[in-house]
Design a protein around this nucleic acid. Structure first.
Lengths: 225, 225
DNA sequence: GTCATCATGTAAGCCGTTACATGATTGC
DNA sequence: GCAATCATGTAACGGCTTACATGATGAC
C-alpha cells in the first residue's frame, strides 16, 4: 500500500524519500507522517524490483529532462540543489524516477479490487487520490464499492442501536458522531458518483488522460511553461 | 490496544470471545471486525497475565451473580445457554471475567497519555468509548489533546493548500472532504469539552461514578428493573 | 442430513512502528 | 560554532491480518 502511494507520487515527478513523505503528509493527508523506517526500505524494495531507479542529481540532469510539473516546492528544491552543488547535488539525497516496469506495477496495484485491505478508509483514500490514473469504469467501481461498504456498516450500526444496547453518554456520542460522519461520507460519494456518470460518455478518454495508467508526455509537459 | 478494548468490555459484564468481537463491531464500531487470530491470542495473554479469568458457565453460576447489566443480547445469550445445557453450557465457549488485577491494568492502559499510538483516531475512539471510567480531569485532557491534534493537522493542510499544490479534481475532492470532516470533528469535540466543563464541578464524583475506574454495584444494578 | 452460524484456536506473514545511528546543509 | 532541519538508513519489535484446522448447535 505504501508502495502504491510512492509509485503514484513518482508518476507525477521525480522525488527523493524525504520529499515523498512530506507530500503524503501535507498534500494528500494520507499516511500522516509515515515513518522513515518504513519509507526507505519500501524505496529499496521498489528499486530492487526495478520499479523505480535512482537518477543522478547532477547539473546536466537538472538541465535536461527535469520534472517541471508545476510544484512549487519541487522546483525550489531543484533550484537550490542546482545552485549550491552543480556537480554532485548535496551528497546523500537519492532522487527516484519511476520506470516503465514501475508504471505497470502501479497500474496493477491501483486497479486491484479484490486484494487484501482493499476496503479500508486509507486504502480507498489512496486509490481515490490517484483515481485519474484509473480507467473510468474502474474509477466508478471504486466509488460504488466504497459507497456500498459504508451503507452496509450504517445499516448494521442502526440495527445494533435499535436492538437495545444502552450506551453511556460518551460511547453514545461517539457512535452518533461516527454515524453522522458516515452519512456525510456517503453523500459525498454520491456526488462523486453522479459527477462521474455525467462525464462526456467516456469518449475522448485516452487522449488527455492515462494510457494504461500512465500520463502522456503531452500532459506532463503541457501544464508547464 | 485490543487488550484495552477487551478489558473495557469486560468491566461491564462477563463475555466470551465471539461476543466481544460482536460488541466491538456492532456496538462501538471500533475495530470493525477484529480477526479471531488477533482476539483469541489477546485473551490468552490477558488470562496468563491474570487480568481476566475464565468462569464456569454452569447452572449455579448463571443462577448466581450473573451480569444483568441491561444488555439485551447478553441476557438472551445467558438465557439460551441456561435452558439448553444447564450442566455444562455448550462445551467450547469460554466466558471471561475481569479480575482486580485486570481492573488495575485497564485503568493504567486507559489513562496512559504518552504511550505509543495514543494519538490516532482509533485509539481516541476507544478511550472515549470508555471515558466514563476515566477521572474527569483525564477525560478533559483526552478531549483537548485530540482537539489540539486535529486543529494542528488542519492548519498544516491549509498551509499546504495555500502554498500551491495543484491537485487533480479527485485528490482535491478528497482533501476538501477530509478537511470538512476534520472541522466537524473539532466542532463535535468542542461540544463535548463544553459539556465536560459544565459538569457539577467535579463534586460528587466517586459516588455515582468509577472508584479507581470501576463501576459501583449501585450503578450496575440501578439501571435495570 | 446438511447448511449457516456460533465458537475457539494456531501459524505464517505483512505492514507498519520506535529507537538507534549517521551525516550534510542552512541560518543565526 | 551550534542548533534546527534535511536526509538516509538499520534493527527490533508490535499488532493485526489471512489462511488453516476443528468442532458444536440450531434451523429447515
Amino acid at each position: 500500500m505504501l508502495e502504491l502511494a510512492i509509485l503514484g507520487l513518482l508518476e507525477d515527478q521525480e522525488l527523493h524519500g524525504y520529499e515523498i513523505r512530506k507530500r503524503l503528509r501535507d498534500e494528500l493527508g494520507l499516511f500522516s507522517n509515515i515513518s522513515f523506517g518504513s519509507l526507505y526500505p519500501a524505496l529499496s524494495r521498489l528499486e530492487r524490483a526495478r520499479a523505480v531507479e535512482a537518477v543522478e542529481e547532477t547539473g546536466d540532469d537538472l538541465g535536461g529532462p527535469v520534472p517541471m510539473t508545476g510544484s512549487l516546492s519541487g522546483e525550489r528544491a531543484a533550484l537550490r540543489a542546482r545552485r549550491s552543488a552543480p556537480s554532485r547535488g548535496r551528497r546523500g539525497r537519492k532522487v527516484y524516477r519511476i520506470t516503465d516496469e514501475g508504471r505497470l506495477q502501479f497500474a496493477a496495484l491501483l486497479a486491484n479490487e479484490s486484494g487484501a485491505g482493499a476496503e479500508d478508509a486509507r486504502s480507498f483514500g489512496l486509490r481515490l487520490a490517484f483515481a485519474r490514473y484509473l480507467p473510468p469504469q474502474a474509477r466508478l467501481r471504486l466509488l460504488e464499492r466504497r459507497r456500498a461498504q459504508l451503507a452496509q456498516r450504517l445499516t448494521e450500526t442502526r440495527a445494533a442501536m435499535a436492538a437495545g444496547s444502552r450506551l453511556d453518554p460518551y460511547a453514545r456520542s461517539l457512535v452518533e458522531h461516527t454515524t453522522e460522519s458516515t452519512e456525510r461520507d456517503i453523500a459525498w460519494l454520491d456526488r462523486l458518483i453522479e459527477a462521474e456518470r455525467a462525464r462526456p460518455t467516456h469518449e475522448g478518454w485516452g487522449d488527455d488522460q492515462a494510457r494504461h495508467g500512465q500520463l502522456t508526455p503531452t500532459e506532463v509537459k503541457g501544464t508547464q511553461s
